[in-house]
Design a binder for these strands. Structure first.
Lengths: 249, 249
DNA sequence: CTCGAAGAGTGGTCCGACCACCTGTGGGAT
DNA sequence: ATCCCACAGGTGGTCGGACCACTCTTCGAG
């Protein structure tokens, strides 16, 4: 560690960082998109041509394309070509679920706290902005949860219930982000032990409380209800962690 | 867009999805980590061996490894081997900056709204939890911003100021997420035109207002101050978008 | 005992070949 | 003239091998 300008406070330092050819290609392609030289939906040159243009082998170019593909920036269609995605929230945040899938222990608790923050705000926004039709969708999922006892379907409608609310909040990016946080694996893991504690009935009441706040168009009540809802799961999870109970997964 | 079976409520539909060999390898490796068969910091078999184990060529295996590398799940060290990262927030959320970098227009506004939600909550949490030392760091960056006029350094300390607060909120994941949202490129783009409207002095006052709320340990005041701070940038951005002004970048 | 050089092993890059798939085209049937 | 389909070319997907750059360990010289 060598400090140069020991100013007031430490500022970010950028290492020289070995530049691998593939990494540079990734940066170049990203830059092309950022600069508008490649637009959403546009088709890229063929892997062979593009590799020649940027001065690297097809193998390395393929790795770069694969990397940008998993990031949701590019999309490869076998036999057709490689295209830039629409670069919408749904495309770029698809990978966000990985974070939830691979996080564990204390980090899972932190993610749940973040979800509580965003879910409560989203629900509050929804209370102010929701349209009758959107409210109908919310109610449909609520009703569907009441009519079945299949855990799979309950969970699916639970997710859809919250997503419908997030969409009604009018921020698609927020909705996608929340969906990632409540991804199948994430919720399934927590739910596995959660449901066995009779928390099922309570969950239903919490959902109805959220619904009432939406109907009343009361943002603060909605915020409180949503925060309490997520907070319950959060509390249970922290309890498990304190007890040293190993999480399934 | 074609709507099919607008039944009660649409539930997620999973396409058959062509399974490319590389994609399957990615899933397999992710599963191994999720199941604990591969632990943080652990070294993977060599590319050649691992490829043989999973029954594919080294080329395809390399693409899978590259993909998981950009996601922050794996780390390849030239000449040494491939390792699982610590799977901490900093590792997995590194890619989040890409979203901010490649978003534009209305999507940028949505991201800013998300930042406002999280920043205000983080600041509120910080007001309740911040330690004297952490407060000292915050003040140092505040002072540093006052003492220089170099936009580069001001911006750097601005970022560090907010990051210090987020860290004080006690949620590292939240801090990393916010850092991604306020990434260099993202803020630089918005700032470019923003500072020229005399908003610079106002920004300083807003920062001081946040600081006072932290000193007073007043979460609600802190929340309001942070929300107003981000809200100002948000308002300006929406104005630009309404005017159809093309964003730089 | 210390230290540096050499070797083995690893990821990084490149090449060429072949396969699977899509798409546009052209000729045939209607 | 119109429609349909087989076909051929082009594209991404996969494979195997070769060589380079780097790291780490080991062992011999000092």
């Amino acid at each position: 560690m060598k400090e140069e300008t020991p100013d007031q406070e430490a500022l970010p330092k950028e290492a020289p960082h070995k530049e691998t050819v593939t990494q540079r290609a990734i940066e170049q392609i990203k830059a092309m998109i950022a600069q508008g030289r490649l637009e959403p939906g546009q088709r890229l040159p063929t892997e062979r041509d593009f590799a020649a243009q940027l001065g690297l082998s097809r193998s390395s170019m393929r790795e770069a394309i694969r990397a940008l593909t998993v990031l949701g920036v590019l999309e490869a269609r076998h036999g057709s070509g490689v295209y830039v995605t629409q670069l919408e929230a749904g495309d770029l945040l698809e990978t966000f679920g990985v974070v939830a899938d691979l996080s564990r222990g204390p980090q899972l608790a932190e993610l749940l706290e973040i979800r509580r923050i965003m879910e409560s705000s989203a629900t509050a926004l929804a209370a102010a902005r929701i349209t009758p039709e959107q409210l109908g969708v919310v109610e449909a999922h609520l009703e569907a949860m009441r009519l079945t006892e299949d855990p799979e379907r309950i969970l699916a409608h639970d997710l859809a219930f919250h997503r419908a609310i997030a969409v009604a909040a009018g921020n698609e990016t927020l909705a996608v982000l929340l969906e990632g946080l409540s991804s199948r694996t994430f919720r399934a893991r927590v739910w596995r032990g959660y449901r066995e504690e009779g928390a099922f009935e309570r969950t239903r009441r919490e959902h109805e409380r959220i619904h009432r706040a939406l109907v009343a168009r009361d943002p603060e009540a909605a915020r409180a209800a949503a925060a309490a809802h997520v907070g319950e799961v959060e509390r249970w999870l922290r309890l498990q962690l304190d007890q040293g109970t190993p999480l399934p997964g």
